[in-house]
Amino acid sequence: MERTTNIISISKIEEIPTLETIKSIPRERTLKLVFENEIKSKRKTIGENLKKELNGFLVAVHTFEPEINIAKLITDEEIEDNKLFFEQCAKDYRDLAEELIFKLADKLGIIINQDYPMMTFNELKSDKKQMGKIENWKYFVHGFHCGFENNKTAQIIEAPLVFGLEFGDLDPYFFTRYIKSTPKYNPLPIAIFEDYADGIRINEKMLSLGKFERISSNVGNHYGIVVTDRQKVEIKSFEEISKIHEQQNIKFEESKFNFWKFIGLKK
């Protein structure tokens, strides 16, 4: 489903649509406010006020252009009406991510570190196997994930690597892109327009409904979201993994793998 955009030129405050008017805009339509003349200087202040008042909307103040773009996000009611669909998507995501990760490990002849898979897959970078192909899939190890894209269907999925052998973490952006790219889900029962912002709302509502739950990760101060109805696996904390490495006479923060260095940050 494609969106249409209403463009309104604003030369004075009075020309800004009322909150009631903006709230009445359906999700299939976006609003672009283009600021002219001396009112351009007030664009950022107006945008910040709109963000405070428009709960459930994405309000984007353009960095360079004199415009504000407004879009209504997926609603709680829409998510609740489709909770079984999103729950099944989450289960399918988990199954496929796990399947692809183990197929990749098998093809490359590597043994996944069950406590901390990231340590195993980081080794691919030094071996120039960070990207490649497996069956009909392209793969690419990056950040905390290994991304896969199907050459035939264009389906995409990101398998997380920092939750032990739990590969069902639902990053809001990756989860919605997976849903939209999966052929068997199309046409979708409910439109998803804003991959990240709609994804956040889906996750938060599904958490409140008890369909999703939060989990800790192998990385300090980092958590994930997974479907509640699943066979749970143990996820060791950063402290537990560090202790294991100490017992093996390996100083974790200086071991061959350092995830902060891997993603370009110093720690």
Results as ranks from 00 to 15, higher is better:
Ile101Val: 15
Lys103Tyr: 06
Leu104Gln: 05
Leu104Glu: 11
Ala105Leu: 00
Lys107Val: 01
Ile112Asn: 02
Ile112Cys: 00
Asn113Asp: 15
Tyr116Ala: 07
Met118Phe: 14
Thr120Gln: 11
Lys125Arg: 11
Ser126Tyr: 14
Asp127Met: 12
Lys128Val: 02
Lys128Ile: 02
Lys129Pro: 03
Gly132Gln: 01
Gly132Leu: 03
Lys133Thr: 11
Asn136Phe: 13
Trp137Val: 01
Trp137Tyr: 15
Tyr139Ile: 01
Phe140Val: 06
Val141Ser: 09
Val141Phe: 15
His142Asp: 13
Gly143Lys: 08
His145Trp: 14
Gly147Tyr: 11
Lys152Tyr: 13
Thr153Phe: 07
Thr153Gln: 01
Ala154Glu: 14
Gln155Ala: 12
Ile156Gly: 06
Ala159Arg: 10
Ala159Pro: 00
Val162Met: 12
Phe163Gly: 03
Gly164Phe: 00
Gly164Glu: 01
Leu165Val: 12
Leu165Lys: 02
Leu165Met: 13
Leu165Thr: 11
Glu166Ile: 09
Glu166Leu: 04
Asp169Gly: 05
Tyr173Asn: 14
Phe174Ala: 14
Thr176Gln: 06
Thr176Pro: 09
Arg177Cys: 05
Tyr178Ser: 03
Ile179His: 09
Ile179Arg: 05
Lys180Gly: 05
Ser181Cys: 11
Ile190Phe: 06
Ile190Lys: 10
Ile190Arg: 07
Glu194Asn: 14
Glu194Thr: 01
Glu194Ala: 08
Tyr196Asn: 05
Gly199Lys: 00
Arg201Lys: 15
Arg201Ala: 03
Asn203Pro: 10
Lys205Ser: 04
Lys205Asp: 06
Leu209Pro: 00
Leu209Ala: 01
Gly210Asn: 01
Phe212Gly: 09
Phe212Gln: 06
Phe212Pro: 03
Glu213Ser: 05
Arg214Gly: 02
Arg214Asn: 11
Arg214Ile: 11
Ser216Gly: 13
Ser216Val: 06
Ser216Cys: 05
Ser217Gly: 07
Asn218Arg: 09
Val219Gln: 12
His222Ile: 13
Tyr223Thr: 12
Tyr223Phe: 15
Gly224Asp: 10
Ile225Lys: 04
Thr228Gln: 13
Lys232Gly: 01
Val233Gly: 03
Val233Asp: 04
Ile235Leu: 01
Ile235Ala: 10
Ile235Glu: 00
Lys236Cys: 03
